[in-house]
Design a protein around this nucleic acid. Structure first.
Length: 507
RNA sequence: GGGCGCGUAGCUCAAUGGCAGAGCAGUGGCCUUUUAAGCCAUUGGCUGAAGGUUCGAGUCCUUCCGCGCUCACCA
């Protein structure tokens, strides 16, 4: 119950009472519809083209978005899931009482159903001439007003709901008045659909693995912790799917993927939300070079399906995802932007010295891998605007990736960047159980318990690997970030329906 | 967590430290082809919260709450 109704809400509640007194049920149980707004217009235009004399009858339903009351006639627009349709109500047709109720007791925001005949107005707009209408749901709280004007075929919206806080906290209102927001989430669904199509087409099996995990792993992040009362067990919300999906490879499922939610107890900013959607796949007998090719093919496929083209604009940059993407060795890339050759700095002390010589700030407690990771983020990542695979990463920040033959310091790992944003991460997966155990031990030694780089030892995962894991290539990608790119959204919150916000006092 | 900025009517926004306003929405009228309909009239505010400075605070100061940008942090 709202603590207090606003004046505008009180007026609408009075209208609700008036309607009831006049025998109008404001929330009827059933509705009827023969045409969506778009179908009704299409049916009329088709008949018009054929020169048909048969009138097009339709029952439509939607939300009232505008009303123009002109004495004994009224024009209104309703909006449904597909678009808008103008209604034309005339006292002669529906009766004075019905028109009066419509004009006086119905409001913008109400859901109605209307039955009538399609026609074209003098101004040329295809419109429903209403014979009867019915209220489907009364709106008490006024929608944040948005008024549309059509200039040269372009819809210009006035007084749009723009306050980001209200848009995210009351996403329902945002969606109701901002059609382009609805479009973002249709695009998001299309992206996920296209990814599934692509992977299914390659014979991948979609699976679901635990979200509540006794040991978290597969990424460097702090987890959310929870507790199972009956089992008296601490559990973690997963930070990645990796270790469970790779267990499945041990079980002879050769190609698996999962699309789902990950949870990371980290900072929130324009590219990070505490819960986010991830795609991971693992492909037996593939290495990271094959995964690289799959990645660029997959993204091109998604762009084709979703946008119908492989070029798009993101925040002013034209991005072209047509394969092949640029491939940049991490060592080379870092050398170009910092002048440091990480190959020549095999120890933490060497790298610290090189950074100091060039006046680059660094965390004196960070091991070599973390320093390199920092250099990437600070100097290299922002320059990677066109799709780029950065490859061959330091071993100590990649505890689940396989070393490059003949180069134990480096692992076969790549990350994909677009528009200066990390989009995906992949490697030739480590399948040697003895090496894997060693990596966990190194992690425990080089990083203290609070460091999110540290991966806890997962004995069961090691046991699985000891049964024999086929060599394989693995891949992970943030669906939210891909959606940002393909919808030209500057902030991850624009592509998450209900993004995390701090709870307000009293709510 | 640090820095910067913002918070005023249902929505979008004004207001040198000096009477808190506009457009849209709403309400009451007129209007039988409008479309940001138009015309006339009109309601609506504890200026995010609490303190303080001042003759006087939306405006200046302090604290708190929330949001945004940014830095730190962030496979």
């Amino acid at each position: 119950m709202p603590a207090e109704y606003t004046n505008l809400e009180k007026i609408r509640l009075e209208k609700l009472e008036t309607l009831k007194k006049r025998g109008v049920e404001p929330y009827p149980t059933r509705a009827q519809r023969t045409h969506t707004s778009r179908q009704a217009v299409a049916a009329f235009e088709e008949a018009e083209e054929k020169g048909s004399v048969q009138p097009v009858q339709a029952i439509v339903a939607g939300r009232i978005r505008s009303m123009r009351v002109m004495g004994k006639i009224t024009f209104a627009h309703i909006e449904d899931g597909e678009g808008r349709l103008q209604l034309f109500l005339r006292a002669d047709e529906i009766g004075r009482d019905a028109l009066e109720i419509f004009n006086r007791d119905l409001d913008i925001g109400d859901f109605v159903q209307a039955k009538g005949e399609m026609f074209r107005t003098k101004a040329g707009e295809v419109t429903l001439k209403v014979q009867e209408y019915r209220l489907l749901a009364k709106s008490i709280t006024p929608l944040p007003a948005a008024k549309d004007e059509v200039i040269d075929g372009q819809v210009v919206r006035h007084t749009v709901l723009a306050d980001p806080e209200m848009r995210y906290r009351q996403r329902y209102a945002d969606l109701a008045v901002n059609p382009e927001v609805r479009q973002i989430f249709r695009t998001r669904a299309a992206i996920v659909r296209a990814l599934r199509e692509y992977l299914d087409g390659l014979g991948f099996l979609e699976v679901e693995t635990p979200i509540l995990q006794p040991i978290y792993g597969g990424a460097a992040a702090r987890p959310f912790t929870t507790y199972h009362n009956q089992l008296k067990q601490t559990l973690y919300l997963r930070i990645s799917f990796e270790l469970y999906l790779k267990r499945l490879l041990v079980g002879n499922l050769e190609r698996v993927y999962e699309i789902g939610r990950d949870f990371r107890n980290e900072g929130v900013d324009r590219t990070h939300n505490p819960e986010f959607t991830q795609l991971e796949f693992y492909c037996a007998y593939a290495d990271y070079l094959q995964v690289m090719e799959m990645t660029e093919q997959m993204i091109a496929y998604v762009a084709d399906k979703v946008l119908g083209k492989r070029q798009f604009t993101y925040q002013g940059n034209t991005i072209d995802v047509n394969p092949p993407w640029r491939r940049l060795e991490l060592r080379q890339g870092l050398f170009e932007v910092t002048g440091i050759d990480i190959q020549a700095c095999p120890t933490t002390a060497d790298l610290q010295r090189a950074m100091r010589e060039r006046g680059l700030p660094y965390d004196p407690n960070a091991p070599r891998g973390k320093l390199i990771d920092g250099l990437i983020g600070d100097y290299l990542e922002p320059t990677l605007v066109q799709p780029t695979f950065l490859y061959d990463y330091p071993r100590d920040i990649s505890p689940l990736a396989k070393s490059k033959p003949g180069d134990p310091q480096t692992v076969e790992r790549f990350e994909g960047f677009i528009a200066g944003m990390e989009l995906c991460n992949a490697f030739t997966e480590l399948n040697d159980p003895l090496d894997q155990e060693q990596r966990f031990l190194e992690m425990g030694r080089d990083y203290d318990a609070e460091d999110e780089q540290r991966h806890p030892m997962d004995e069961d995962y090691l046991r699985a690997m000891r049964y024999g894991m086929p060599p394989n290539g693995g891949f992970g990608m943030g669906i939210d970030r891909l959606t940002m790119l393909l919808t030209d959204s500057p902030n991850i919150r624009e592509v998450i329906l209900f993004p995390h916000l701090r709870e307000r006092e009293g709510e």
